[in-house]
Design a protein around this nucleic acid. Structure first.
Lengths: 136, 136
DNA sequence: AAATTAAACGCAACTGTGTTGCATTTCAAA
DNA sequence: TTTGAAATGCAACACAGTTGCGTTTAATTT
């Protein structure tokens, strides 16, 4: 599926900015921060528009948001089974303590956890850190 | 161990602000944000001093830092086995999707994860969300 | 008890992320 | 080609968190 089709398929308009953002998303093997998007764009775009497009991606199921362990949002492409309002991002995220980059891992099974009385579990997320292959 | 002793034991001076922060930490069953500390203090204190004291707590092993899922830091008391530069915070954190509060869960075993070639794992963190007992 | 010194503090200023309001432009459909 | 909604740009704002620096204070020494 082309990026134009991808956007259309998720109910988003195809604009130069969004195609450019998708290009960056697809070219990267890891989650990117807003800053990295801004620095890598070929088109000129306002910070605010980038934020809004990335938020639109998340809402539409085109990308998912990951926190980088210091509170900054990173974005990575979703699998084909994500759609408007629902994400199937049941994979772990690995953050490198040296370069700070965040990588999506393969999907895994998470263990059940006993919660205190009254707590209702919705989702579990496994976050990993260590050293990535580029930083060893 | 009194709070004075606790601070002394971790190489920190006992000041009115730090004792007040410790009081709030101890009175809470969940991790608190900087804002909550600021609002709950009996003594007057500058925002910056609160940030600095909380950072000092983390570095000394008195408290640990948890992200609340929206990028803001929360702080909770450490167990007795944490010290300067090393934390034994091998427990999951639960964030309520309604009120946003973050709770520390009991320590659990995390499953081993197969990482891509070249990645070296340091630590794993299990993050949970759902509805807390106060919000059902 | 007074002097001393490093740690802690208060204040001002700054950085960076992320958001909101509003006017303007642009996409896509009629 | 017209048209309406979505997307963008710009200005301003909110908030977390940090840094520099001068002053105060805690704990040690004399």
């Amino acid at each position: 599926m082309s990026n134009e089709e991808l956007l259309r398929h998720h109910g988003l308009r195809t604009t130069a900015l969004r195609l450019d953002l998708l290009r960056l998303l697809q070219a990267s093997d890891r989650a990117l921060t807003h800053q990295e998007f801004e620095g890598g764009l070929k088109v000129e775009a306002d910070r605010v528009s980038i934020f809004r497009s990335l938020n639109a991606f998340v809402e539409a199921g085109v990308a998912h948001r990951v926190l980088d362990g210091r509170g900054t949002s990173c974005f990575a492409r979703c699998g084909t089974d994500c759609g408007h309002g629902h994400h199937n991002d049941t994979h772990a995220h690995f953050r490198c303590n040296t370069c700070g980059h965040v990588y999506c891992m393969d999907p895994i099974e998470l263990p059940g956890v006993a919660l205190p009385r009254g707590f209702k579990l919705a989702k579990s997320y496994l976050e990993l850190d260590g050293t990535c292959k580029g930083c060893r």
